[in-house]
């Protein structure tokens, strides 16, 4: 009996270790609609993707659109160590680094954001999602649909969703002139290649982020 229990424990522990990667990739499709009829600049972002890669203590958000490609690399332990923003496209590619307080300052608009929850639900990328409305201090609102089946990304990676109790798979911002929607089209648990988290340096100019930080 004891031997059997020990064996079961060892097997579970072994499998647990083998599946401990917890890597997550979410691809959000961007769709933009404007009230005005004529085709404008929004078409250069419409149809693009925003991909979130999370593995261990690293994360990366990559945005790809016709107009530009940009990535934000994160490295953290219990707190954010550093965020690096890289413009990957164009003649002048550049990078700037942000310390944890600077990153907070960069996302100051999400400070003290509140969530309210509604009963609506929607099936997104195979997950049933509940509706939440994020109220920003500026008066802006983000309508988000989240699933409790996936552990939410930490507040460093997605500072706009700190009050949402699950992984957001769709979010939208509506204004008088139109609407921007980010909707998950793929959720992958496959192991992410290490190279994805390597910050490129060749041919990239290092710039200094000069905006005031939020530390005081």
């Amino acid at each position: 009996m004891r031997i059997s229990l020990l064996l079961i424990w060892l097997l579970i522990a072994g499998q647990g270790l083998a599946q401990q990667h917890n890597d997550l990739t979410i691809v959000y499709d961007i769709s933009i609609s404007k009230t005005k009829r004529s085709t404008g600049l929004e078409e250069t972002y419409n149809g693009g993707t925003r991909t979130v890669f999370i593995a261990g203590n690293k994360a990366r958000i990559r945005m790809v659109s016709l107009m530009r490609m940009e990535s934000i690399f994160f490295e953290y332990d219990s707190t954010l160590k550093q965020a690096a923003v890289i413009k990957e496209s164009g003649a002048k590619k550049y990078r700037f680094n942000l310390s944890a307080p600077q990153w907070e300052g960069f996302n100051k608009k999400y400070e003290d954001a509140d969530c309210s929850f509604e009963n609506d639900s929607m099936l997104i990328a195979g997950y049933w999602c509940k509706k939440a409305v994020i109220h920003l201090t500026s008066g802006d609102k983000i309508v988000a649909y989240y699933t409790s089946s996936i552990k939410p990304a930490n507040g460093f990676t997605e500072p706009s969703f700190t009050c949402v109790p699950g992984m957001v798979l769709q979010y939208e911002h509506t204004s008088r002139r139109g609407m921007v929607v980010f909707k998950a089209s793929q959720v992958s648990r496959e192991v992410i290649a290490k190279e994805i988290f390597v910050i490129p340096s060749a041919g990239i100019q290092l710039r200094k982020y000069t905006a005031e930080d939020n530390s005081d």
Binding site: I32, E42, M63, N107, S175, V180, F182
Partner: peptide, 20 residues
């Protein structure tokens, strides 16, 4: 997006503000 570095195109509020 490239001049002041205080706007983030991957951020829905910044992107929406710019495009609208």
């Amino acid at each position: 997006f490239d001049k002041e570095l205080d706007k983030n195109p991957a951020d829905i509020i910044d992107l929406s503000e710019f495009l609208m």
